[in-house]
Design a protein around this nucleic acid. Sequence first.
DNA 1: CGAATAGTTGATGTATCTCAAGCAGGGTGG
DNA 2: CCACCCTGCTTGAGATACATCAACTATTCG
Lengths: 237, 237
Amino acid sequence: MAYHEHSAAVAAPLRLQPTVGVERDWAAAARATRVKTHRLPAHDVIYYEGDAADRIFELIEGAVMLYKLLPDGRRQVVEIIGPNDVFGMLASKTYDCNAETLTPVVVRAIDRREAEASVEMQRHLTLCLLGQLETMHEHAVLLGRKSAAERVASFLMRFVPERGGPDCPGPRQGTKDERLIMLSMTRQEIADYLGLTIETVSRVISDLKRRGLIAIEKQDRILINNVCGICQLTGAQ
Amino acid sequence: MAYHEHSAAVAAPLRLQPTVGVERDWAAAARATRVKTHRLPAHDVIYYEGDAADRIFELIEGAVMLYKLLPDGRRQVVEIIGPNDVFGMLASKTYDCNAETLTPVVVRAIDRREAEASVEMQRHLTLCLLGQLETMHEHAVLLGRKSAAERVASFLMRFVPERGGPDCPGPRQGTKDERLIMLSMTRQEIADYLGLTIETVSRVISDLKRRGLIAIEKQDRILINNVCGICQLTGAQ
DNA sequence: CGAATAGTTGATGTATCTCAAGCAGGGTGG
DNA sequence: CCACCCTGCTTGAGATACATCAACTATTCG
């Protein structure tokens, strides 16, 4: 059973936004093939593990999580997909994960055969895959070797992509080094992404709050008071 | 400092083995571009994290591990590369991992620019990447959600690829369900791959031996007496 | 307003880590 | 050829980070 038809709902009119660089070719290629743009609400299943993988998806807007389940119900969120990322590409015939929206999203669904036929699309897909593989490497380090506090700190830093990298500009002089972020994930989803329990995630967040490093504005709206401080807790610095 | 020149040593004569399917095109493409085949001994560094990623590698024979280090020395082996796999492809300019041989290997080094220019090569690379991403998803489940015993059992099952999958044929009737495998990794490397300590890996292996599920022939030569039994300990069944 | 859902906090348990000692195999040199 | 050393592995005892279980609180939404 691929795709929740009741929620896939209104296939929104194909509205291609302006793009740049290699994106331009991709968009052109997309236009030429059988592409459908969909709007989905939050917490909606896009596909299940084991479904026939006959379509690939490009996320235009919002966030999607990919997760796997063990037979006894343990869950691991393996990837969090953001705008311009592609998901649902497989070497095999069926999806290897479940895909579920975290927020309301706009996705483009592309027929697999057509995507495979287009050279431009291949190039775009490969680029996406390379980024994802790199992210997975980083995530393996987190899951295999980091403490609970380091995992949560690393998770928070995901939302401040311009900081923490090798070319981190550091805090701007004269400004408070703060940043408001929207998690758009429940504690359970965060826990399943970080390989922790909901209670441990909660405790770490409470601790960061107590230490004044963050403030909780509204459960999943978090104000990082000190980006550098959080960054130093990731274990990577 | 890319590549240990002292060990890259003799660039062996380019010997292309017979290939099938899409592989054929790839081999032809490889022949046409600047490709160099190298033989390296076991435990040799191919590249370091941060090196300029100007070449990609195809493993012809042997095994390679990719690993990342945290500043305090914690290590995570993020991928184990086998024959026909490609590694060292990046979206960015530098390698994101260290690459080290586990066994003596034969690798083909391809100039990155040329690989990017060839459509056939792109197709091959994409296929490899898809497989690797799927493997990483599986590994994330292992690292995030499995117990030490389940991790070691899953690791052992890696060496019996025809079993444990969705189309597992089960044990052959009338034969003992056993299998001799070569780990070609030290306990430390296994531990760093599974996100455990060397002692925990050792204890789990000892326990499997005590329960008669495996026999240790020679440290890294393990006889699985009961493949089905090990498979049931992976947590995935 | 009240039920339902999501998140927090505390007390306790346990799987795995850490530290420490002993053991085994493989290679070297006397 | 055998003793010795070196390295990698195993085993034990104790510590600890995180999980589990359970109660309570906050938020959301009808």
